Simulated assay, not measured.
Amino acid sequence: MLRSLLVAFLLILLAPATTLAQSISGRVTDAITGQPLPFVNIGVVAKALGTVSSAQGTYQLACPDKLAADTVRISSLGYRTLNVLLRQLATQPNLALSRAPVALAEVQVQAKNLFKRTRTLGFTGNSESATMSIKSTDLGAQVGTVIYLKHKPSKVLTANFNVAFNRAGKVTFRLNLYRLDAQGKPTDEKLLRREVVLNTDVTKGPISIDLAADKIILEEDFLLAIEWIGGADAAKIQQGLAFSAGLGYANNDIYFRTVSQAAWERLSAGAVLAGMQPKLGFFVTVQD
């Protein structure tokens, strides 16, 4: 009984696909070089309609009449975010993004006693029966968990994701670390200053990403998320890929978004099971 309840609570139920009036096909390029830009997030703001450009910069996006006056946000790390109306995108589907100014690295003076202790933060469970899936009809779907720092500042060394099973084949993911707002909810501001794209066909077990060279030093809690940006199709992702999960009392707030630029939503088991909450098998190692 507990297992069936757990699985029910941990399924991410996403909105059904929007009825298509027409389909927009285009390409995203660098405004200066003309080179195609891969894995750009494209979507109607806060709606369940979005996608990600391919490795060749091409994309395809539905264009339902009822959303024609809504704003489409096009964003990519290192480039200025572009906002256009969906009906304008339908007439001018090819997009050129301008590079954003590069911020100089902050000089940090660190005491000698900092970063001596290594610890693991998050949920390390590797269950193959209690699982959580990414379900979406298009690219850009994400799921993540809030990582609460024990001591501040902390230096992030690795990001880890426990795969319960993968029968979808090779999948392309993007690692994202997001800043939280004053209420503890994820924003769109990324704390990782480079694109970390991972092509994997791991069938089960941990995916570990080394971040030591990035020198990510944080004094704030953050959202650790993984984003589906390519590889297997939506049907295979929905049916054949899941991450380890569990239940517990400790903070492990889980957020998801259905497609690119969709609103973040919080997953909760509510008041059942004596206040226990779902936990997702995502964790980091840090030094503090």
Score class of each variant (00 low, 15 high):
T71G: 02
L114T: 13
F161D: 02
T118I: 15
N251T: 13
E265C: 00
V286D: 03
Q56A: 11
S98H: 13
S136I: 10
S244R: 00
R87F: 03
S129F: 11
A168K: 09
E195A: 04
T145K: 01
F173L: 12
A103T: 14
D70Q: 11
L2V: 13
V84K: 03
G275I: 02
Q88C: 09
C63P: 03
R193L: 07
K116M: 12
A274Q: 11
A8C: 08
D201C: 09
T137L: 11
V107G: 05
S268N: 12
K279R: 05
S136T: 14
L114R: 09
V7H: 03
Y148C: 00
R3S: 14
T33F: 10
A250T: 11
Q56I: 05
A90K: 13
A168M: 11
L180S: 07
L2W: 14
V272K: 14
T118S: 14
W264M: 00
G281Q: 08
G169T: 06
P38E: 03
P206S: 12
T81S: 09
G184D: 12
A17K: 15
N41I: 03
R266N: 13
V44D: 06
L139E: 03
Q239H: 12
T33E: 15
S76Y: 01
G230N: 06
R73L: 08
D70I: 10
T91M: 12
Q287L: 15
R266Y: 06
P64L: 07
A111M: 13
Q88R: 14
K66C: 10
V40F: 02
N252I: 00
A164H: 08
V109Q: 08
Y249I: 11
P93C: 10
S25A: 12
A46M: 08
G50V: 06
F165V: 11
E265R: 02
Y148E: 01
I134R: 04
S54R: 02
P93D: 14
V156H: 01
K155Q: 01
S75T: 06
S244P: 00
L149C: 04
A212W: 03
A212M: 00
G50M: 12
N199I: 08
V171I: 15
R80L: 12
A141L: 08
R194E: 02
D253W: 00
G205N: 09
N176K: 12
N162E: 04
S244N: 01
Q261V: 03
W228F: 06
N166E: 15
Q110A: 13
W228L: 05
A245L: 07
L67I: 09
L49S: 02
L218Y: 04
A232P: 01
A130I: 06
L89A: 11
E106I: 12
R99D: 02
L11V: 15
R80M: 13
T124R: 09
D214Y: 02
V45R: 08
K190P: 00
S98M: 15
S54G: 05
V171A: 10
K204E: 09
I209A: 02
R80N: 11
K135C: 13
